[in-house]
Amino acid sequence: MKLGAVIAAAVVAVGVGQAEAATYTAVDYDLYLRYEGTAFSDLVAYDQWDLDNTYSSPYYPAEDPLNLDISNKMFPSLAIGDIVRFIATIVFPEDPDQLLGQYDNGGRAPVCAIGKTSCTNTTEAYPKGPYDAFDIRYSDLIMITGSTQVGSAFTYNQAYPGDWASDDGRWSYHAWYSAAKFTVVEIVDTPAPVPLPATAALLPLGIGALATMRKRRKAQAV
């Protein structure tokens, strides 16, 4: 079957599914974010040039008041003030409290990236309001909280980020928790929720078609 026929079949299936009780809703997000820095809890910084110089703090703010040159492990190339794009198709379950497995409520993100950092490993999705804000999560380690309001906060929270080093090799770091902070500066597209069919067998087809159509639209716009 040709790609166009597959997409057409999926669109028809979604349309039929709207007459039933939809169990999932897919929402597209396209935002520009300004990086504001990263805050850490239970941070320890080791000075490799002076082994007697060690700093620890239960909370270290994103403003980096001691100039420890701490780059976010997930966004090492970003400097404060840099602009990145968040593009995602998030699939929300009608019942966000359903449990398909540990850390899995059926939420998915077949398209999801903050700049060059992928978030497609999403297994939980929680809408807030009319899908203008959300939480998406992966296991108990990663949580992304976003909003479609200009000026609102957007955070990438990571538990147990492990050990990493400064670009010049002077500092090595360890933290219990990190929170990369962004501010929404532009909304490219207003989210438009699309109900997906209740038939579980059609769900992967519908999600794949939505992601494919989104990629084709963006390719044509370039």
Rank of each mutant, 00 (worst) to 15 (best):
M1N: 12
L3A: 03
L3G: 06
G4R: 14
A5K: 15
A8V: 01
A8I: 02
A9N: 09
A9Q: 13
V11R: 00
G17N: 07
Q18H: 09
A22Q: 07
Y32D: 08
Y32R: 11
L33H: 10
Y46E: 14
D52I: 14
N53C: 03
Y55F: 10
S56V: 08
Y59Q: 00
Y59T: 00
Y60W: 01
P61D: 06
N72S: 07
F75L: 08
I80M: 06
V84T: 05
I90G: 09
F92K: 11
P93T: 09
Q98H: 07
Y103V: 10
N105H: 08
G106E: 06
I114Q: 02
G115V: 11
G115P: 05
C119S: 06
T120I: 08
K128H: 07
P130Y: 13
Y131D: 15
D135W: 15
R137Q: 03
L141D: 10
I144A: 01
T145W: 11
S147K: 10
T148I: 00
G151T: 14
A153T: 14
T155I: 02
N157C: 11
P161Y: 01
W164N: 00
D167C: 15
W171C: 06
W176L: 04
Y177N: 04
F182A: 13
D189Y: 09
P191N: 08
P191Y: 06
P195D: 11
P197F: 02
P197S: 12
L203Q: 06
L203I: 11
L205I: 12
L210P: 00
K215R: 14
A219F: 10
